[in-house]
Write a protein that binds this DNA or RNA. Structure first.
Length: 353
DNA sequence: TCTGGGGTCCTAGGACCC
DNA sequence: TCTGGGGTCCTAGGACCC
């Protein structure tokens, strides 16, 4: 498709911005959404005023407090952000047919075949600001990969267009870290081989890259470094797993307390299974000890389940088998269900809507 | 300054089957 | 009497994303 245009949109500092919309007295202040100082947790999102103090997403809350003690620290209020997210997606959907939400604050939209994609994108951006009050940064390019990076380059309040044919040139000077799929580990491995920009990555010998990342990883990464990506905008995706986990404020060793947490988590997973019309065959527990070592233990059943008692029973027996034998304090406990089948009732609904 | 919670995808090894 | 080989399922860990 020669006139493929993909729009990527990302709401600036979304959680902090929503909090400021709900409480205008927060406007212009360093707002840090995540956890209260003195508790276990990290920064989810912070306002640009807070970023000026060096506060960043995923930073331990204690460090954020050390850098910005005058900050306004707020707990995460997911329901509120979801509500704003829905309103933004609704605006996108008014203008574009194919919309793919990526997360609560990000989406792709397929603008292929639209006469003036840039004009439309600006219109959507204005619309979101006027009707919802949030600022969306946008990237417009010939594919998802480049559109997303374009958004990033313009933040905050960005609008960056990358012309088709210009992808590799646009990416070349940027850090490899900007590429989807290159995290701290891969970046430092590449760095060790003298590769720090996307341009250097694109020019690297494939054999050399394969040694570093395996042949599949090398091939995929090279394509991305050249700005090539033909993945479609997917309007719906299958759920693969459902989980609930918690980090305790203080490491927990009491059997009964742990059992109660596990039961509640099983219940949450089961409720969600039922809501989605799914049955799970695999149940996994996740344990994290005081030294942060983390293990998962799974079991796959012959029969798929969606009942809270059953999920609790299976995760409980995993706990007995793997924790009770060596009952050290836990920092985190979690339950996950996966290996889904649709329930008979839902299958019927789908066959005879 | 100790490290959240919800996910996805990939890899590797072992069991098992034909 | 010296280790086939391919496919599938399962477990566990790890990297990564927001």
């Amino acid at each position: 498709l020669t006139d493929r245009w993909i729009l990527h949109m990302d709401l600036d500092a979304m959680y902090a911005s929503v909090e400021a919309l709900l409480d205008p007295s927060l406007r212009g202040k360093p707002v840090i959404v995540g956890a209260r100082p003195g508790t276990r947790g990290v920064v989810s999102t912070c306002s640009y005023e807070a970023r000026a103090f060096g506060v960043r997403s995923a930073m331990p809350i204690g460090e954020a407090y050390a850098r910005c003690p005058q900050g306004v620290f707020l707990p995460v209020r997911m329901e509120a952000y979801r509500d704003f997210s829905r309103r933004v997606l609704a605006i996108l959907s008014v203008h574009v047919e194919a919309v793919q939400p990526l997360s609560i604050d990000e989406a792709f939209a397929d603008l292929s075949g639209i006469p003036e994609p840039e004009h439309l994108a600006r219109e959507i951006k204005d619309h979101i600001r006027e009707e919802v009050g949030l600022v969306a940064s946008m990237g417009l390019a010939g594919n998802k990969l480049v559109a997303k990076i374009a958004t990033d380059r313009g933040k905050p309040d960005g609008f960056v267009v990358v012309t088709r044919g210009d992808e590799a040139r646009f990416l070349a000077p940027l850090s490899v870290r900007q590429l989807w799929g290159v995290g701290p580990k891969t970046a430092s491995r590449l760095e060790g081989a003298g590769i720090s920009t996307i341009g250097e990555l694109a020019a690297a010998e494939i054999g050399r890259l394969s040694e570093l990342l395996g042949s599949n990883g090398a091939r995929d990464l090279r394509e991305r470094a050249l700005g090539r990506d033909d993945s479609p905008v997917e309007t719906s995706r299958e759920i693969k797993s459902i989980s609930d986990e918690v980090t305790f404020q203080r490491d927990e060793i009491d059997r009964r307390a742990l059992w109660e947490v596990l039961r509640a988590q099983a219940q949450i997973c089961a409720e969600r299974l039922q809501r989605e019309g799914l049955l799970a065959r695999t149940v996994t527990i996740k344990l994290r000890y005081s030294d942060f070592t983390t293990v998962t233990r799974a079991t796959t059943l012959d029969m798929a389940i969606d009942d809270a008692e059953e999920v609790a029973r299976v995760s409980g027996s995993l706990m007995r088998r793997y924790w009770s034998a060596d009952p050290r304090p836990l920092r985190l406990l979690g339950v996950r269900v996966s290996g889904f089948e649709e329930t008979a009732g839902w299958r019927q609904l789908r066959l005879f809507p």
